[in-house]
C-alpha cells in the first residue's frame, strides 16, 4: 500500500504536479493507493480529473485507489460531477488503511 497526503489546494496550477505524484505512486506497483484528502481545502475540476485518471490507471493495473478523509467542501464537487459513487471513499485514513 502507498499513501499520498496532498495539502492545501488541488486546482489548475497544482494538477500537473499532483498527476506526477500519483503516477510515481502507481509505478510502485502496490495493490492499493490511498489518497488522504484530509488536508485538502479546495479542489476544482482539474484536480478531480487527475484523480479520475489515476483511478482508471489503477483499475488497469488491477489496483485499488481509495480516497480518505475527504471534507464536505471537496466532496461536494464529486457529488456535482456524480463521481462520488465511482470512487472508493472512506471517512478517515485509518479506515482506508485498515482494510
Amino acid at each position: 500500500m502507498v499513501v499520498i497526503t496532498p495539502m492545501g489546494e488541488i486546482s489548475y496550477s497544482e494538477a500537473t504536479s499532483f498527476r506526477a505524484v500519483l503516477k510515481r505512486a502507481a509505478d510502485l506497483g502496490r495493490p492499493r493507493i490511498v489518497v488522504d484528502l484530509t488536508r485538502v481545502e479546495y479542489m476544482n475540476s482539474p484536480g478531480v480529473a487527475t484523480l479520475v485518471e489515476a483511478l482508471q490507471n489503477a483499475r488497469r493495473a488491477r489496483a485499488r485507489l481509495i480516497l480518505a478523509g475527504i471534507t464536505p467542501r471537496v466532496l461536494a464537487i464529486f457529488q456535482i460531477a456524480r463521481l462520488h459513487t465511482v470512487f472508493e471513499i472512506r471517512d478517515t485514513l485509518d479506515a482506508a488503511t485498515a482494510e
Binding site: V48, A49, T50, V52, Q56, I80, A81, L83, V86
Partner: peptide, 18 residues
C-alpha cells in the same frame, strides 16, 4: 456525459449544474 467516466470536460457541467 456524466455516465462516461473520464478525466476532463467537467467544468461546463459544473457551471450549468451549480
Amino acid at each position: 456525459d456524466l455516465d462516461d467516466v473520464k478525466p476532463g470536460g467537467l467544468g461546463v457541467h459544473i457551471i450549468r449544474e451549480v
